[in-house]
Write a protein that binds this DNA or RNA. Structure first.
Lengths: 197, 197
DNA sequence: CCGATTCGGAAACGAACGCTCCCAAATGGA
DNA sequence: TCCATTTGGGAGCGTTCGTTTCCGAATCGG
């Protein structure tokens, strides 16, 4: 009953996230969010309670979407290592994006807010745990198939750490080729039949 | 001639950096910097011109110090790989620091400001270039000594990317053991005589 | 010991901050 | 067709922002 909303919450969350992502959370004012989303200041507070709450919601939406996309990529690939390579290609593409939303929103928030905002930190820690499970599962399948070597969880930690490192480089600017070259060296070290040495 | 300064610029830069680092640059006000440094607002502006300028100076001081420390670590070690291991131990220690200045200041600034502040970005890009040369040189020596395998510059990019990735994890909290385990897997993949498979 | 020069710091600037309030507009059930 | 209820939005709340201004204090060459 009563008057229905005129805006699509997902669209508003996307636009708010991009604003936070481009300029930093603290540097993004409510009036800037109003411009970015098309909602008035009062409507933003009616719908999202506070700036911190809105930020947390954009992050939760982002991490959920990112994990779902990664799960599709990893499980839809022809083999575990093919899945990892597809993941890396997507990361390299996002990292070499010239827009101010290049890199990874979760990395931006981890760096700027995780040490000071308990709520953000909790979302990121939970995301990390689930992401690690996803990647470790793929690595385990790769080890079983003889494509990869090492202890799956430790290897998964290395993979996600390296991806995050590339996302940091992305904030300063990195080419697609340099990002992929890094991933190539990484994978070469985790492959049993590598013709090095 | 004229009245001498009553403060030590290095001490003030250290305290300002820690304030930026803990809370984020945008979220750190001039009055907070005044409290942290002991200088009055007017004195800060007389000595450092602006908040952005002060931030850039803290970063330049930090990156110079970090590179000098790493150079000492890498060149003072018994072997190239021993140098890398010493580097990783220092990173893991800084990453598992429970204080809000855990992780790496350069990563914090890369994530929060590099995409929007040209000056900060330039400092970080320059730092990256020099850091990469330093690490690549060590890797090259390691390859020559038969301790490491791969193309030195690409391997160096992987090492620095992984280190930055651990620094991102540090902002959310990571144990010393988990950080070191990640580095162990990384090095195992870059070592010719590893008993895996 | 004086005068040029710099420093330290309190007060104040206009602007922008996050947020609340209030009211008109829009809806569905009675 | 009202009426209860929720939305949209603009004006305004008190506070804090980054920065400037101004002036007494301190120093050193003359």
């Amino acid at each position: 009953m009563a008057r229905p909303r005129e805006f699509d919450e997902d669209v508003v969350l996307d636009r708010a996230r991009n604003a936070f992502w481009s300029n930093g959370v603290a540097a993004t004012s409510i009036s800037a969010l109003s411009s970015a989303t098309g909602l008035s200041v009062g409507s933003i507070y009616k719908a999202f309670a506070s700036k911190d709450q809105l930020c947390a919601m954009t992050l939760e939406d982002y991490t959920d979407t990112a994990r779902a996309g990664l799960a599709d990529t990893l499980r839809g690939a022809a083999s575990p290592t093919a899945g990892l390579r597809a993941w890396f290609k997507g990361i390299a593409a996002a990292a070499s994006d010239p827009s101010p939303t290049r890199g990874c929103y979760a990395v931006e928030l981890a760096a700027e807010r995780a040490a000071v905002d308990e709520r953000i930190r909790a979302i990121l820690v939970d995301h990390d745990r689930r992401l690690l499970e996803l990647v470790a599962d793929t690595v385990r399948r790769g080890v079983d198939a003889g494509e990869l070597i090492g202890e799956p969880e430790a290897v998964a930690r290395l993979l996600t750490a390296t991806v995050n490192g590339i996302q940091v480089e992305a904030r300063k600017g990195i080419s697609y080729a340099d990002a992929m070259a890094t991933f190539d060296v990484l994978l070469a070290g985790l492959t049993p039949t590598d013709p090095r040495s």
